[in-house]
Design a protein around this nucleic acid. Structure first.
Length: 390
RNA sequence: GUGAUCGUAGCUCAGUUUGGUUAGAGCGCCUGGUUGUGGUCCAGGAGGUCGCGGGUUCAAAUCCCGUCGGUCACCCCA
């Protein structure tokens, strides 16, 4: 037997329904609010992500699906979409400001586990161009509307990581501090000193707690402009009645972020995250445009959403096919959808099939009745009687 | 990249420790009957390269090695 590729997922039945439902709510939340949908290519030049996400990041060094095509180009399956959106924007709308939304497959070569797949779906939104802090608020408010329409209760974590210069100075101090206290850190954290210092703050190892708690805090290394922007933003959130938890240790894995970073957490799982990226365009050599965005893990949302609204389902049964064909043609004309038995089996078997398929009503085309499968009450079949039930 | 654990019928699993008839069960599926406002019950039937490859052995689902896949965790992230 040929097994499926590691880390891929088959969405079937209820999961597929949830996928469509989430896509639908996503479109209602973003697309219809002026975030134009963009279908981006799945393959991109490797260079795009080397530059944007960062050559030393975990994603680029270990997690990209890389290949050479027949023209000897270095290509990758995209690990995320923000860089592609910025590429597109700079190519076609360089001197405009625009809002985008996207919904599609991403790929990262990691070992799969709960809520993490090699091929996964992200739904995201970006505002790119000459923009101010108001965009940050818009992205967050729209995200919150999206999650609440899905009936998902999430916690919003918030942080600012300042400008690149500020961050570099902070990391320098952090390196010194952790080096000095090496002996009281886990081996894994020690390995990150000088390489991925910020991530040490994120350590789950209880052994590290004490040292991390006493570590320098990023806010002490940010200048007044950065801090006042951040304070103003928090004030806006409070005015809007948006609850959040400030987490100075929240660092994102992508190099291009500055100032605002945030994530939405449900039961300990990050279902979405994002932030500000004012230097991404420049890093890509594409100009000098700002941006802010959010991305949701659709697979994680599928695993989180408990139930979705269901439609009333009708199944036709009959003891001969001509009865079945007659009624199904009538329903086709009336625009009513229905299920049919897979084959002309005996009546009892067809009833069983209806029950198995979770239908609400069975139309017996031979007897001309509509039966409510939940209480076994039958009424005469005709189109208007059936329509009343739907 | 690291670690743990699992892989036997469509599904859930027993059998693996201690190698030994023809590899089993429940559910599901198909056929016939029963019931007749139907989801019950009865009988029969189909369905298995024991994930894959190699090794040990007179003999492997069972032991060894490798590999692929699932689940979970670390790392990391959505």
């Amino acid at each position: 037997m040929i097994e499926q590729v590691k880390g891929t997922r088959n969405l079937y039945g209820l999961e597929a329904e949830k996928y469509l439902y989430i896509y639908d709510i996503f479109r209602k939340s973003f697309n219809t609010y002026g975030y134009d949908l963009i279908e981006l290519p799945t393959i991109e030049h490797k260079e795009l992500f080397d530059k944007s996400i960062g050559e030393n990041s975990e994603i680029v060094t270990k997690q990209m699906y890389e290949f050479k095509d027949k023209g000897n180009r270095d290509l990758v399956l995209r690990p995320e979409a923000t860089a592609s959106v910025v590429r597109f924007h700079n190519e076609f709308f360089r001197n405009e400001s625009r809002k985008y939304s996207y919904f599609g497959k991403m790929f990262r070569y990691e070992n799969p586990q709960k809520n993490r797949y090699r091929e996964f779906i992200q739904a995201g939104a970006e505002i790119v161009g000459t923009i101010d802090e108001y965009s940050n608020l818009q992205i967050l408010k729209t995200s919150i509307r999206f999650l609440s329409l899905l009936n998902i209760k999430s916690k919003l974590n918030l942080n600012t990581i300042g400008t690149k210069n500020e961050r570099e100075k902070y990391i320098e101090e952090l390196d010194k501090y952790f080096s000095k206290n090496k002996r009281e850190l886990s081996k894994e954290s020690v390995d990150k000193i000088g390489k991925n210092t910020l991530r040490i703050l994120d350590s789950n190892d209880p052994f590290d707690n004490q040292i991390i708690d006493l570590a320098p805090v990023i806010y002490d290394y940010l200048n007044n402009e950065t801090l006042s922007k951040y304070e103003a933003f928090k004030k806006d959130l409070k005015t809007e009645g948006i609850n959040f938890v400030e987490n100075p240790k929240l660092v994102r894995g992508l190099d291009y972020y500055n100032d605002l970073t945030f994530e939405f957490v449900v039961n300990g799982t990050v279902v979405g995250g994002g932030g500000r990226y004012d230097s991404l365009s420049e890093i890509l050599g594409l100009g000098n445009l700002s941006g802010v965005g959010v991305a949701f893990g659709v697979d994680r949302l599928i695993n989180t959403v408990k139930s979705i609204p269901s439609k009333t389902r009708v199944m036709l049964i009959a003891q001969n096919l001509s009865d079945l064909n007659l009624v199904s043609s009538k329903l086709d004309k009336a625009g009513i959808s229905y299920l049919l038995p897979v084959r002309g089996s005996k009546e009892n078997t067809q009833y069983k099939e209806a029950i198995k398929n979770n239908v609400d009503y069975v139309v017996n085309c031979t007897e001309n009745t509509i039966k409510n499968i939940n209480n076994n009450e039958s009424i005469k079949f005709n189109i208007s009687n059936l329509r009343k039930l739907l």
